[in-house]
């Protein structure tokens, strides 16, 4: 296969784009997809301070690299979950990557915040992935609000977004469907959230990380085995294999044709939020989930 742009030997085949790319042209393709997502959804400007959530995986590190190269005003934030089997290695990768890239990095330690994930896992009955996600989102938002960032960027890719959309659609979850998208504006107590990789598949971010020589954290979280989001991704990949481009079309069509209706429905009857009595951040209960977990752990 030849590169669709320059005719050199291709290293990346993209059936969904009817294209193949050599490493240099693939990086151009990748940059343009990120640029297009940021501009099309008016995510943030070059000057606005933006926080990038860094797990140490291929998506978040690729996103930070790309935003730095494109000249955005970014700072990385890593959350150390306190899981002995995986957290020290993930943190070391993030710290080494940011040092080599010359990027600013902040680290929040969940043990110091009173919510180390192993202890949280032992005290909750719900699936730990859901609780851990809630805790991470809480601290990303809090850190961004406390430090004056205009937006939080996460490395969610097309597969993450489509998997989540598929799950929300199976449940016809009006609340979640009303605000799923690559860009969510800030509102009372919440900083804006952006997903600049939403046009790029998991394969494309993996190829970008490899071709850019990014040393990623590959060991999966020891608690994520059998997680439902992995099964949904595999299901969607089978669909994409038979019908290249189906994932992006499903997602873009949702944004264009369906989301406005769910937004309107949520505006009519959505759950009202109020400041948490303990921490002041928005919650639908009197005391937010994170404060309740923190109190339970003593």
């Amino acid at each position: 296969m030849k590169c669709s742009r320059c005719g050199a030997v291709a290293q990346v085949a993209l059936p969904s784009h009817h294209s193949g790319f050599c490493p240099d042209c693939f990086r151009v393709f990748f940059s343009r997809q990120v640029e297009r997502a940021i501009h099309q959804h008016r995510m943030f400007s070059q000057q606005e301070p933006v926080l990038v959530a860094l797990s140490g995986g291929k998506d978040s590190l690729s996103l930070l690299r790309e935003l730095v190269l494109q000249g955005y005003n970014v700072t990385g934030l890593h959350i150390d979950l306190g899981i002995p089997e995986s957290s020290p290695a993930a943190r070391a990768k993030v710290e080494a990557f940011c040092a080599a890239l010359g990027a600013r990095l902040a680290v929040l330690d969940m043990a110091s915040e009173g919510v180390p994930i192993p202890a949280v896992k032992a005290c909750v009955t719900r699936p730990i992935c859901s609780v851990c996600g809630k805790i991470k989102r809480y601290y990303f938002n809090k850190f961004a609000m406390d430090n004056g960032f205009a937006a939080i960027c996460t490395g969610h890719n097309l597969d993450d977004e489509v998997g989540r959309l598929f799950a929300n659609t199976l449940r016809w979850d009006v609340g979640y469907l009303s605000d799923q998208g690559p860009s969510l504006p800030g509102r009372d107590g919440f900083v804006a959230k952006c997903r600049p990789l939403y046009r790029l598949s998991e394969y494309e971010t993996a190829a970008y990380a490899f071709l850019s020589g990014i040393d990623i954290h590959v060991a999966p979280c020891p608690y994520s085995k059998g997680a439902s989001f992995t099964r949904r991704k595999e299901l969607m990949n089978r669909l994409e294999g038979e019908s290249p481009g189906a994932k992006l079309q499903f997602y873009e069509s949702f944004l264009k044709n369906a989301r406005p209706h769910f937004e309107a429905a949520e505006d009519r009857g959505g759950v009202a939020l109020a400041p948490c009595e303990r921490c002041g951040y928005p919650t639908s209960a009197v005391v937010c989930n994170v404060c309740r977990i923190r109190e339970k752990l003593g």
Binding site: M1, G20, P23, Y203, N237, G241
Partner: peptide, 14 residues
């Protein structure tokens, strides 16, 4: 095709 990277000698194979 897009489930994995196939790597040989530091290169990706289509």
């Amino acid at each position: 095709v897009n489930d994995c990277l196939v790597i040989r000698d530091g290169e990706l194979l289509t």
